[in-house]
Design a protein around this nucleic acid. Structure first.
Lengths: 146, 146
DNA sequence: GTCCCAGTGGGAAAAAGTGGGAAATCTGCT
DNA sequence: AGCAGATTTCCCACTTTTTCCCACTGGGAC
């Protein structure tokens, strides 16, 4: 179970330390990709592959398949940690998440999210406002699914 | 698994660097052809035939198959990389994808797409809008296929 | 305090990317 | 056939990026 948060830095060479506590779960090789919000997602190679099942094998004649592939595969990046546990962050990902220097790594069960500190804090305070209604909707959904 | 993106340039002589990270998977000899959108597709010689299965591998008695053959095969160009990993881009392909100087290479599992940077960004933001519905349709399709 | 380790920063060599000259080849025209 | 202009190929030079180290810092344990 991956959880907790950690604050790290991006240096001039776009290197980022991957939190030590997550390293044993993920290994030395990671997949970094765009998140659905202004953030990044890091997953291990093994869970990445299971995520892709059923989408990438299909024919490129379908425009839906092409769209999904462009999002899932085109935006992803395969990175390896150096001996100090750092990896190189591609610039297109850095831009997508508006990362400057200080970033937050948040463990979310099966994957890790990366946020710019500032945006993370904004998200947190926004969360405080909307959490009650979110909880209500989730509860309704759960009831309907049964 | 081919994934990730990279930005390259087309120089005055219509030469383009093929990203290093893709080179080991593709080798020195590539096939470049028109994509179904405003883009190009690059395939390795070895996976070219398997990629075509299900598209042009079918009977030539079907006029749809013939049409697709004309598009994919008729527009294909066989190129070789120079010692610096560059290849020459035929002008009819350059025009098809509206390429100017900066292009994006996106790795999509078995092949690479080439886009003009501007068009790629537009595609990305369009993707953002339609991704939820795309995901739903793909999930439904998968359920029906079972 | 000292030791140790995770994290951070940076130098320098190597590799990759970019640009362009000049020879070689091709093309069309007289 | 022979020439002129354009295109392609081969090669070299410069710039930027990446990679591989090594050194420093700061906090926690002893």
């Amino acid at each position: 179970m991956i959880l907790g948060q950690w604050i790290g830095k991006i240096d001039e060479k776009s290197r980022v330390s991957f939190p030590k506590r997550f390293r044993e779960d993920f290994g030395e090789k990671l997949i970094v990709t765009k998140g659905l919000d202004r953030n990044l997602i890091i997953v291990s190679v093994t869970s990445w592959e299971s995520l892709l099942e059923g989408t990438v094998g299909q024919s490129f004649l379908s425009s839906d398949v092409r769209a999904m592939q462009r999002f899932l595969l085109g935006n992803a990046s395969f990175v390896e940690l150096d001996e100090k546990g750092r990896f190189l962050l591609p610039s297109y990902l850095k831009e997508h998440a508006s990362l400057s220097t200080d970033v937050v790594f948040a463990g979310l069960h099966r994957f890790v999210e990366v946020w710019d500190v500032k945006l993370w804090e904004e998200e947190q305070s926004a969360l405080r406002e909307k959490l009650p209604s979110v909880a209500t909707r989730l509860a309704e959904k759960e009831r309907n699914d049964e």
